[in-house]
C-alpha cells in the first residue's frame, strides 16, 4: 500500500512542476508577444498608453509582474480581461465553465459507452461482417475532423429536419444534443478501437479459456470475465481522450455558438487578450494534469494487482 501512496505523491510533485513550468512559460511568452492588446493601438497617444499600462499593471518590472501574476493565480485571480469590458477574467470564465463541462462530460459518457459496446461486439465477432462495420465506424470517427461532423449534424438535424436548435444555449438539454454528439465521435472511435484490441487479447487469454471450460456461455464469459479486464486499461486513454475533447470543444462551441470556455478562448486568441489566454491555458493544463493523476489513482484502485501489491512501480 505504501508503494502506491509514494507513487501518487511523486505524481503530485510532477504535476505541480508541470503547472509551474506552464505558468511561467505562458507568462514569459505573453510578455514577449508581438502585437498589442489594445484593439485601438494606433489611435492611442503615449499618455493614454501609459495610463492604460498602469491600470493593467503592465508598467511594472517583469519580475514584479511575475510574482503578482503567480500569487494571484494561486488565489484563482487571473487579473482583468484586456478586451471584454474590463471584467475580471475569473468572472468571465466562471460563467462559461458550466456549459463546457456539461458538454465534455456528456460527450465522454456517450462516446465511451457507445464505443465500449461497439468494441466489445466487434471483438466477439472478430473478422465478421459486424466487426467490419464497427471498424469502419471507428475509422470514420477517427478520420473525419469533428468540425466537419459538427457542421454536417447542424445542417442535417437543425437546418433541414429542425429537430434541434441550430445554435446557442437557451433550449436546455435540447441545445446540448448536437454538440454532444459531435464531440463524442472522437472518444467513441478511440474507445471502440481500444476495447476491440483489448478484448480480443483478453478473449484469447488462458483464464477466458478456463471460464469457457467451466461451461459458461460465450456472452457470459465476455461480460463476466472479459469486459472488466478489457475496461481497466481503457482508463489509461482517458487522459488523451479528454485532451481531444478540449481541442474539439474549441471548434464545436464555435460552430454551435455555445457560451463556453472554448469559444471564449478562440475569441481571446483573436483579440490578443493576454490575461484570458493565460487563464484558459492554465485551466486546460490543470485539468489535464488532474485527469492524468486521477487516472493513475483510479487504475490503482480498480486493478487488484496494483492495489495490494504496490510492487508495480
Amino acid at each position: 500500500m505504501s508503494g502506491f501512496f509514494r507513487f501518487i505523491l511523486k505524481r503530485i510533485v510532477y504535476m505541480l512542476i508541470t503547472l509551474l513550468l506552464i505558468s511561467s512559460c505562458t507568462f514569459l511568452l505573453m510578455n514577449f508577444l508581438p502585437g498589442s492588446p489594445y484593439g485601438n493601438e494606433e489611435k492611442l497617444t503615449n499618455k493614454q498608453r501609459e495610463v492604460m499600462n498602469e491600470r493593467y499593471g503592465l508598467n511594472k518590472p517583469l519580475g514584479e509582474r511575475y510574482i503578482i501574476y503567480m500569487s494571484g493565480m494561486l488565489k484563482g485571480d487571473f487579473g482583468i480581461s484586456l478586451q471584454f469590458g474590463d471584467q475580471p477574467v475569473r468572472s468571465i470564465l466562471s460563467k462559461r465553465i458550466g456549459p463546457s463541462l456539461q458538454l465534455g462530460i456528456q460527450a465522454m459518457i456517450l462516446g465511451t459507452s457507445v464505443g465500449i459496446i461497439l468494441g466489445m461486439i466487434a471483438a466477439m465477432f472478430q473478422n465478421s461482417f459486424i466487426d467490419a462495420i464497427v471498424s469502419l465506424i471507428a475509422i470514420i470517427g477517427r478520420s473525419v475532423p469533428n468540425f466537419v461532423f459538427a457542421v454536417l449534424l447542424q445542417l442535417l438535424f437543425a437546418v433541414y429536419l429542425k429537430l434541434f436548435p441550430i445554435a446557442l444555449w437557451d433550449k436546455g438539454f435540447l441545445s446540448t444534443v448536437l454538440p454532444t454528439v459531435a464531440l463524442s465521435v472522437s472518444p467513441m472511435a478511440d474507445s471502440a478501437r481500444f476495447i476491440r484490441t483489448e478484448m480480443i487479447e483478453v478473449l484469447n487469454s488462458d483464464y477466458i479459456e478456463l471460464a469457457r471450460a467451466k461451461g459458461m456461455s460465450e456472452w457470459r464469459v465476455a461480460f463476466k470475465h472479459g469486459l472488466r479486464n478489457a475496461l481497466i486499461p481503457l482508463i489509461t486513454i482517458l487522459g488523451p481522450m479528454s485532451v481531444s475533447l478540449m481541442t474539439g470543444s474549441l471548434v464545436v462551441e464555435n460552430i454551435f455558438a455555445i457560451p463556453g470556455i472554448g469559444e471564449q478562448f478562440v475569441k481571446s486568441i483573436m483579440t490578443n487578450d493576454y490575461s484570458t489566454i493565460m487563464a484558459v491555458t492554465m485551466l486546460y493544463s490543470t485539468m489535464l494534469v488532474t485527469i492524468i493523476l486521477f487516472v493513475d489513482i483510479l487504475y490503482g484502485i480498480v486493478d487488484p494487482r496494483i492495489r495490494v501489491g504496490g510492487g508495480e512501480y
Binding site: M30, T281, L288
Partner: peptide, 24 residues
C-alpha cells in the same frame, strides 16, 4: 524520463496556440 513526464502534462493544444501567438 522525468522531463518527459513533466512535458507530457502540457496539452498539445496549449503549446501549439502559444507558439502560434508568438511566431507569425
Amino acid at each position: 524520463q522525468r522531463i518527459l513526464e513533466i512535458i507530457s502534462g502540457i496539452p498539445t493544444l496549449v503549446v501549439v496556440i502559444l507558439m502560434l501567438l508568438f511566431i507569425r
